[in-house]
Amino acid sequence: MTAPKDPADWTAYVIRIRDHRDRAAFAAVFAHFAPRVKGFLMGSGASESLAEECAQEVMATLWHKAHLFDPKRAAVSTWIYTIARNKRIDAIRKQRRPEPEDLPWGPEADPAPEDAIALQQETERLKTALDTLPETQRALIQSAYFGDQTHTQIALDTGLPLGTIKSRLRLALERLRHAMQ
């Protein structure tokens, strides 16, 4: 089983893992996302061996928590990102990650399929919008997520004063918002 032509179809793969414990679907998701998770963790300062181990654990968590995946609330890339981020907080930053409680009126038991499709399309548009940003702005957004670093650290890395970083990041987000409209 290879990667889907339409990236939104990752949802169908994870649902096959969820409902049928489908190993071929898992292998395809693994082939696409595991190297990205590893790259993400190394970008956050993990050694290669730690990043490899953590990326395997992230993918194993995906398998174990597949029953919690709700395509109406998150795209597959979003969901894997949150698992990878939490693993980074746990394994690299040595902190706990508190998770919010579901609101009393959600999640709905029977999500409308068109909501899930709309969410996947929004996610794709966001990806495209990110691609069209000027390189410096995209790099700022990436470092805000990738690096295990605050704005202060980014300021040290880029030699830009903190106020400039914050206003540029805001500008990048504004442009992203504009591109989404």
Binding site: R36, F40, G43, A75, I80, T82, T123, K127, Y145
Partner: peptide, 23 residues
Amino acid sequence: TLGGAVLDAGEECAMGSDALTAT
């Protein structure tokens, strides 16, 4: 969701040859 887009567009780092089996 933006974090997911950053992850998806980010750099890949090849997994070990037996990574899938190990996982």
